[in-house]
Measured scan of single mutants.
Amino acid sequence: KSAVKALFDYKAQREDELTFTKSAIIQNVEKQDGGWWRGDYGGKKQLWFPSNYVEEMI
Results as ranks from 00 to 15, higher is better:
57 M>N: 08
13 Q>G: 08
25 I>E: 06
12 A>T: 05
5 K>V: 13
39 G>I: 02
26 I>S: 01
35 G>K: 09
43 G>S: 10
14 R>K: 15
51 S>D: 06
10 Y>C: 08
6 A>T: 07
40 D>W: 00
27 Q>H: 14
18 L>C: 05
33 D>E: 13
16 D>I: 08
54 V>N: 03
18 L>K: 01
35 G>R: 07
9 D>H: 03
5 K>D: 04
12 A>M: 04
51 S>Y: 06
17 E>H: 07
36 W>C: 07
32 Q>E: 11
31 K>Y: 08
1 K>P: 12
19 T>C: 08
58 I>M: 13
11 K>F: 15
28 N>Q: 07
20 F>D: 02
16 D>L: 06
48 W>N: 04
31 K>W: 06
55 E>S: 10
20 F>E: 01
25 I>M: 08
8 F>H: 13
47 L>G: 15
46 Q>E: 07
44 K>I: 05
27 Q>K: 13
57 M>H: 11
56 E>Q: 08
50 P>M: 02
29 V>L: 03
52 N>K: 10
16 D>N: 13
55 E>G: 07
12 A>Q: 07
32 Q>Y: 15
41 Y>R: 01
50 P>D: 05
4 V>M: 11
30 E>I: 15
33 D>G: 10
40 D>H: 00
7 L>M: 11
28 N>I: 04
10 Y>M: 00
23 S>L: 10
26 I>V: 05
24 A>C: 12
35 G>Y: 11
25 I>Q: 04
45 K>Y: 14
39 G>M: 00
53 Y>S: 08
25 I>L: 09
44 K>G: 12
17 E>T: 02
13 Q>L: 10
33 D>I: 08
49 F>N: 00
22 K>H: 07
35 G>W: 07
35 G>M: 10
58 I>R: 12
27 Q>F: 14
22 K>V: 11
51 S>T: 09
32 Q>G: 12
52 N>H: 13
49 F>A: 01
53 Y>Q: 07
50 P>V: 00
10 Y>A: 01
2 S>K: 12
21 T>M: 13
42 G>Y: 05
27 Q>M: 14
36 W>F: 08
13 Q>R: 12
11 K>W: 13
56 E>C: 12
49 F>H: 03
39 G>P: 03
53 Y>G: 03
15 E>H: 11
16 D>E: 11
35 G>Q: 09
29 V>M: 01
38 R>E: 03
40 D>Y: 00
7 L>F: 05
25 I>P: 00
38 R>T: 08
29 V>R: 01
21 T>R: 12
2 S>D: 11
16 D>C: 15
36 W>D: 04
55 E>F: 07
30 E>A: 12
3 A>T: 15
1 K>M: 12
51 S>M: 11
24 A>R: 01
12 A>K: 03
38 R>L: 11
38 R>C: 06
10 Y>K: 04
2 S>C: 15
35 G>H: 08
19 T>V: 04
13 Q>W: 06
46 Q>K: 08
4 V>N: 03
4 V>H: 08
13 Q>S: 10
24 A>N: 07
53 Y>K: 07
55 E>N: 06
14 R>S: 14
10 Y>W: 08
28 N>M: 06
12 A>H: 05
19 T>S: 14
15 E>D: 13
31 K>I: 09
43 G>T: 10
23 S>N: 15
22 K>M: 10
30 E>G: 09
24 A>E: 06
54 V>A: 06
23 S>Y: 13
41 Y>M: 05
45 K>Q: 12
6 A>L: 03
33 D>P: 14
52 N>Y: 10
54 V>G: 04
25 I>V: 12
58 I>Y: 14
11 K>R: 09
7 L>Q: 08
23 S>W: 11
19 T>N: 09
48 W>D: 02
55 E>T: 12
8 F>M: 14
35 G>C: 14
55 E>V: 13
28 N>V: 04
35 G>V: 07
1 K>A: 12
19 T>G: 07
41 Y>G: 02
36 W>M: 08
8 F>K: 14
9 D>Q: 03
54 V>S: 03
52 N>R: 10
7 L>N: 07
53 Y>M: 12
37 W>K: 01
50 P>N: 05
15 E>V: 12
52 N>C: 14
37 W>F: 05
9 D>M: 01
22 K>A: 13
54 V>M: 02
52 N>E: 13
27 Q>Y: 14
8 F>A: 12
43 G>P: 08
47 L>D: 04
17 E>L: 00
24 A>K: 02
13 Q>K: 12
43 G>C: 10
5 K>Y: 07
36 W>R: 09
12 A>W: 02
7 L>E: 07
55 E>Y: 08
36 W>P: 02
5 K>G: 00
53 Y>V: 11
18 L>E: 04
17 E>N: 01
48 W>V: 05
4 V>P: 03
4 V>T: 04
10 Y>N: 04
6 A>C: 09
42 G>M: 10
34 G>P: 06
32 Q>M: 15
38 R>F: 05
22 K>P: 05
53 Y>P: 01
9 D>N: 07
22 K>N: 07
12 A>N: 04
19 T>F: 04
39 G>N: 00
33 D>N: 11
57 M>Y: 14
2 S>A: 13
2 S>Y: 12
10 Y>E: 06
6 A>G: 05
8 F>W: 12
6 A>N: 04
41 Y>N: 03
58 I>T: 15
26 I>E: 01
23 S>P: 02
31 K>S: 05
49 F>Q: 01
4 V>Q: 05
11 K>C: 15
36 W>A: 04
25 I>C: 10
33 D>Y: 09
46 Q>T: 05
26 I>A: 01
39 G>T: 00
54 V>C: 05
33 D>H: 11
56 E>R: 04
43 G>K: 07
52 N>M: 12
3 A>P: 09
20 F>R: 01
49 F>W: 02
15 E>Y: 10
14 R>Q: 11
48 W>T: 04
4 V>A: 12
9 D>G: 06
3 A>I: 15
40 D>K: 00
45 K>E: 13
56 E>S: 09
58 I>H: 13
46 Q>C: 09
1 K>Y: 10
33 D>M: 10
2 S>P: 14
16 D>V: 09
19 T>E: 10
22 K>Q: 11
53 Y>E: 02
32 Q>I: 15
21 T>F: 10
34 G>Q: 07
51 S>P: 04
36 W>N: 03
